[in-house]
Design a protein around this nucleic acid. Structure first.
Lengths: 367, 367
DNA sequence: CCGGAGCTGTTAAACGTTTAACGGTAAAAC
DNA sequence: GTTTTACCGTTAAACGTTTAACAGCTCCGG
């Protein structure tokens, strides 16, 4: 296997020029006359020459790679993030190296370590906890980096892109309370993750203010099957709440799975607000009302910040905070008459009505 | 930004040894005395030294990277594949570069081209059509590669890992016919993709043999939203079939979305068999009966083949063909009495029964 | 006490690029 | 007709590793 690969030198010989000329043809850094350029291009094609990135990178110091670290490659939220980053990376001529920390701090450190070995132009990372990995903290100011999602804005001297988690909690909780729900359960993944805590805080603050009681928050972990078991178990020893607000897409699945197994009807017996917006959520007779994260925008902003830093922007770290919106569909039941003419902030009415155009711009759509 | 990074030389100076010794400490190729090793390790830590992969790769010719090319990073089937490959790659000390061809042949060629620029140890590719990209065909025998999913076994002189698509079609169709369905529609993505054609052929052969009629096959594309529109449109000008067999996970979503919008009940009005097995399919009151691809095994076999080739295995290309199974849940209605004691090949009974352990080993579970 | 053998360390030559510096030719300017 | 200028090529020196070749040392057998 593995015949020797063509090098600049071989192409140069075959085309009868110097290696510098060949290099210039490929990099376009200096102009090359058409006749020579044609010769070089033909020679390169004949040898099926391909610039060796290792050599190129070693000499030039420029990398054209970005590392992307996420906590879980099976979580659709992270993979859709990667998908969008890959598109923009391609557009700007970068390649993407992915790594998963599998929600493990040690693995996260070691994955980052190897990522750094690539001398990437930058790193986009979703930390697995809200303490930023030491190895990254050390690189702040030296290596362009953007921290996404699981991070407290301002907790680190790097650009961050997050959603307004507190507000997301508020929006969902307010909607549920307005609909007449009072016995509300928050299905969290892990309460030690900052954005999750914020969502809980946001929801709790609304419920406490409007109803004077504190909603239960339960931790279902970040595995849907395990979460379904935990929630089933929880259901067995608690009265059925009137509404459940799931704080992540995985806990949304966990809750739905558990309710399906127990044959509990949505929204007749219990109302549900899910998190994230995926096609499967609308592909059901009772389409899911859910908090939608602007994945496209998160990816776009993260990429733009990274590019700015790579280009040398030395401004203070900027914490981008994006807004979520409630996609109202059919999984929450109204228990009290509708207050006339009222419009809630961040709420978009949207059923499975075939006539509506509300289903545009879904994560699974390619634009 | 970007203070100069520590190099071997700097570490060597600080530790008072030669660069060869430092290299040996990191690569472990030659033994180094403990006292020196300690000194080197301390110096390296102090400078937070990290081997430069570009230089290392350039000199050694060894890469420790594999390229993974898929047609769509928003398709859960492909991302779960990537997730599993990443795990095994890490175990064997490889990094993963991902690229998406976005179902575009030209883009596929160019993505492969850049992937090759990395001089990877090997490539795992899911082609976007069944004609293997020229650039890959050229590398057959030189670069370790494994072709997965969208490829006809034997159509190329490289290892392939596919499922038995014909059989998958047969299993689903036979089940539907045994349940008494005769008006069956096949919801395909694109009929010009080989594995899809095979699924259609398998299902069609069974229906023709058992019922003497040919099921309709419609192309819904590889975007769920667009597919839903197409299927809605189809439903408007055709009588409702008694069963729909969706041939990909995306068409499964398309069909379910369209049916939900039209408020058509599953399985009362129409029975459904989906493709692939994801958590959301069981997270519904009418859990979806579906053909399950053994994603874990596909990824494992692909990785093992690749590793064997990297290790120098020069045996003839081996086409691995894995079997699918029908996960029987609640989305297909029985129209005729059950034939007593009959067991169908490849069929696993499985409801949403909370007592069952059948829900183990889901794609979203981490083991 | 000499000559391997076995360790452990160093020297130095690549690997395939990029790119600063330089050279040579021809057209433009004077 | 000479000098400038512009343009296009080439030469050669890195970049940070790996690794063959070599060298010094200790230990051991003869």
């Amino acid at each position: 296997m593995s015949r020797k690969r063509a090098t600049l030198k071989e192409v140069a010989e075959r085309a009868g020029v110097s290696i510098a000329t060949v290099s210039n043809v490929f990099s376009g850094r200096k102009p090359v006359n058409d006749d020579l350029r044609i010769k070089v291009e033909r020679a390169a094609k004949e040898l099926s020459y391909q610039v060796d990135r290792a050599a190129s990178q070693l000499k030039s110091g420029r990398a054209r790679v970005v590392g992307v670290l996420v906590p879980d490659l099976d979580d659709t939220f992270f993979t859709s993030l990667i998908s969008r980053i890959e598109v923009m990376a391609l557009k700007d001529g970068y390649d993407v190296i992915v790594a998963s920390s599998r929600d493990d701090r040690h693995l996260e450190e070691s994955r980052l370590q190897t990522l750094l070995g690539w001398r990437p132009s930058g790193i986009i990372a979703v930390p697995c906890s809200d303490t930023v990995p030491a190895i990254l903290a050390r690189e702040v100011g030296h290596l362009p980096m953007v921290l996404v999602d699981r991070v407290m804005p301002g907790s680190v001297a790097a650009d961050t892109v997050t959603i307004d988690n507190f507000e997301a909690g508020e929006i969902a909780a307010r909607y549920l309370v307005e609909m007449g729900h009072s016995d509300i359960v928050l299905a969290a993944s892990h309460l030690d993750i900052a954005p999750i805590r914020e969502r809980v805080r946001g929801a709790t603050s609304v419920v406490e203010r409007m109803l004077g009681r504190t909603p239960a928050a339960i931790g279902l972990g970040s595995n849907a099957e395990r979460g379904a078991e935990l929630f089933t178990h929880w259901l067995e020893r608690h009265p059925l709440p009137s509404a459940v607000f799931a704080l992540t897409n995985v806990t949304t699945l966990a809750v739905l799975t558990a309710l399906a197994r127990q044959r509990i009807d949505i929204p007749e017996q219990v109302s549900i607000i899910g998190f994230d917006d995926y096609t499967w959520m609308s592909a059901r007779k009772t389409a899911l009302t859910a908090i939608r994260q602007p994945v496209d925008e998160i990816a776009r902003v993260a990429w733009e910040r990274l590019q700015a830093r790579i280009a040398g922007d030395a401004a203070d770290p900027y914490p981008s905070i994006l807004n979520t919106s409630l996609q109202v569909r059919d999984s929450t039941r109204r228990l009290v008459p509708s207050p006339v003419g009222e419009r809630l902030k961040g709420v978009e009415e949207q059923g499975v009505d075939p006539a509506g155009d509300a289903v545009k711009d879904r994560p699974n759509s390619i634009h």
